[in-house]
Amino acid sequence: MTRKQRRGLLIGLGVGVLSIAAVLMMFAFRQSIVFFHTPSDVAEHKIAQGVRFRLGGLVKEGTVARGEGTRVSFSVTDTIGTVPVSYEGILPDLFREGQGVVAEGILGPDGNFVADTVLAKHDETYMPPEVAKALKEKGVELGKSAEHPGETQTQ
């Protein structure tokens, strides 16, 4: 086998595997992308029912209520819109009223967001960047520490 043929074979192998991967990726993206929305997006009826998405905002003060068993309900707000959320399971350690939160799930017909995942963070001063950014876009005053959380450490 000549050098040229060999190189052709190698390139062919590489291109072949890459194109298989590309097809897989396109297919996977179509199925597994989850969009991120804020409560005001929900209020503007931008989201179809039954579509999985991530809802991010602040846990509204005084809305966390425990129900039967491990059922928990709370509201997520960006101060403009508010969406009630229900969740079955154990909330992350750092889940607190007034804190930023990201919940993943489906919007029910009654406008209730049924979450199957509530995201936790490791760090108290950390706010998920989407939440911080989305809230900022909505003109919500977050205070310095939410945007530059690192700096609060030296305060």
Binding site: G143, S145, T152
Partner: peptide
């Protein structure tokens, strides 16, 4: 005087 008014809700809470 840590500027409580300027703190984020998270910070203030903590």
């Amino acid at each position: 005087a840590p500027d409580v008014a300027a703190m984020s809700p998270a910070d203030r809470d903590a």
